[in-house]
C-alpha cells in the first residue's frame, strides 16, 4: 500500500448536493479499489490564480488516501472524464503504508484536534510575513548594487578615473 494525496478543483457553480455527489463518487472509487480514505478535506471556494475553463473561482478539495498503485490511475481516469472536475494533482506521500500506520495516525489525530489552539495562529503568521518582506527587499537592493560595481569596473573604468 502507498499513501497518496489528490488535490482537485470542483466546478464552483455546483450546488451543495452536487458537491456531495462528487465527494461520494470519488470516495466510492477509492473504496472499490481496496483503498482507505484518511482525510477528505474541503478547502472551500477559492480564487484561482488564472481562469480555468472560463471560471475565476474553484472549489478545492484535498483527498488523502492510501491504497495500491492502480488506484491513482483509476481515480485520475475518472477525474478526466468528469466534467465537474476542473483540475487535479496527485502526489505520493510515502511508499509504504500499512494498516498499522493508519490506526496509529487515527489514534494520534484524535487528541490533537482537541488541543489545537484556535486563536493565536493568524496573528503570528501576519508578523512573520512582514519581517520576511523587509528582508527580501534588502537583499534585492544589495544585488542591484553589486551589479553596478561590476559594470563600472569591467566596462568603463577610464571614464571614472
Amino acid at each position: 500500500m502507498r499513501r497518496y494525496e489528490t488535490l482537485f478543483i470542483i466546478d464552483p457553480e455546483l450546488t451543495d448536493e452536487g458537491l456531495k455527489d462528487v465527494a461520494e463518487k470519488f470516495k466510492n472509487i477509492i473504496l472499490a479499489d481496496k483503498g482507505h480514505i484518511i482525510k477528505y478535506d474541503e478547502w472551500g471556494k477559492r480564487k484561482l490564480a488564472y481562469p480555468v475553463r472560463k471560471r475565476e473561482y474553484g472549489f478545492y478539495v484535498l483527498l488523502d488516501y492510501c491504497g495500491p498503485s492502480d488506484i491513482v490511475n483509476e481515480l485520475e481516469r475518472n477525474m478526466r472524464i468528469d466534467e465537474r472536475i476542473l483540475k487535479y494533482i496527485t502526489v505520493k506521500l510515502s511508499d509504504s503504508f500499512d494498516q498499522e500506520d493508519l490506526e496509529k495516525m487515527k489514534a494520534a489525530e484524535a487528541p490533537e484536534q482537541k488541543e489545537a489552539p484556535p486563536e493565536e495562529v493568524p496573528e503570528k503568521t501576519g508578523e512573520a510575513f512582514v519581517e520576511e518582506e523587509t528582508k527580501e527587499s534588502e537583499e534585492s537592493s544589495e544585488t542591484e548594487e553589486e551589479a553596478e560595481v561590476d559594470t563600472e569596473s569591467g566596462e568603463a573604468p577610464s571614464k571614472k578615473e
Binding site: 478543483i9 490564480a49 488564472y50
Partner: peptide
C-alpha cells in the same frame, strides 16, 4: 511548479 499546475499560483 505543482502549485502553478493546480492554479494556486500564477504561471
Amino acid at each position: 511548479k505543482r502549485a502553478r499546475h493546480i492554479a494556486l499560483m500564477p504561471y
